[in-house]
């Protein structure tokens, strides 16, 4: 459908983008207001921009620590999940094993399970292993909950690679694992990368396990840390908006750089080709 875009269309686009971005715009504008102005007026722009809220966001709460925690947990999760998922996806799409349908079915069905039904036994397991308030305590559940999506996307990518490549590798005397490591995996690199970004974002955003397992302030991740900025007596909107802006920036950068990949990953499961 190649309709030409008219002026009305661009007006619509501008309104649409403005509505979608409005919360971010407003929060940013708030974060540079002096604290007194936040509570006293609905002016869009302040005449006295200040960075006080940013200073407060970093000093009132260990925001840097939250970001470090999130970063470590998400990176480790991404690397391990992508490794495990690409093994599984490769075996499921290209190796002669039995029960492929069953295995894929189990993995996909497990993604539909509500996390709250996993939470309390998982809490007991993690407590039993002494992994509460640690990175590993979060990485373990995170890898697992991202496996279904990762396996699904990677399987789609692996399927697209021609099977002749493997046969010629076999003729050249490559072992099955060498074929995977040296031929198929590099060819699927774009898919692997896409999967990695999606797993990273999912791990970065996870809330329920992080809230439950890492309850010590020094081990909190960004989403949980931000949600703890409110205190019982007052809500420091200045600090919160500054902190929100800070933690949103990495995501905006990630999205701007990798938007095509993200879209292809998100839609790879839902559209038949």
């Amino acid at each position: 459908m190649n309709k030409r875009a008219g002026i009305g269309f661009y007006v619509f686009l501008i309104i649409f983008v403005f509505l979608v971005m409005f919360p971010f715009i407003w929060v940013f504008l708030t974060s540079i207001k002096p604290v007194g102005e936040i509570f006293s007026s609905f002016n869009w722009f302040t005449k006295h921009p200040s960075l006080d809220s940013y200073v407060a966001a970093f000093t009132h709460r260990p925001l840097v620590r939250y970001m470090l925690n999130s970063f470590v947990v998400s990176i480790v999760t991404t690397l391990l999940a992508v490794a495990f998922a690409s093994f599984a996806a490769y075996a499921l799409t290209r190796l002669p094993i039995k029960g492929k349908g069953l295995i894929l079915g189990i993995v996909l069905a497990s993604s539909m399970f509500p996390q709250v039904a996993i939470l309390s036994p998982m809490f007991n397991i993690v407590t039993g292993l002494g992994l509460r308030n640690s990175y590993l305590g979060l990485v373990l559940p995170y890898i697992t909950i991202s496996l279904p999506l990762a396996i699904w996307i990677l399987a789609t990518f692996f399927q697209k690679i021609p099977f002749e490549l493997e046969e010629s590798a076999k003729l050249d005397g490559a072992s099955p694992f060498q074929t995977f490591r040296k031929i198929i995996f590099p060819l699927a690199a774009p898919g692997v990368f896409t999967t990695g970004i999606l797993v990273f974002i999912a791990a970065w955003n996870e809330y329920l396990f992080a809230l439950t397992i890492n309850s010590n302030d020094a081990w909190r991740t960004v989403p949980v840390g931000i949600s703890m900025y409110t205190s019982e007596f007052s809500i420091p909107w200045g600090d919160i908006s500054a902190a929100t802006v800070i933690v949103t920036i990495p995501i905006v950068i990630l999205v701007l750089i990798f938007q095509r990949r993200i879209v292809s990953g998100l839609t790879s499961g839902s559209v038949k080709e």
């Binding site: 919360p23 971010f24 929060v27 989403p223 929100t244 990630l254």
Partner: peptide, 11 residues
């Protein structure tokens, strides 16, 4: 892409 918890704080 923004964490739901962060979006919830914004709203």
């Amino acid at each position: 892409a923004v964490p739901t918890a962060v979006a919830a704080m914004m709203w």
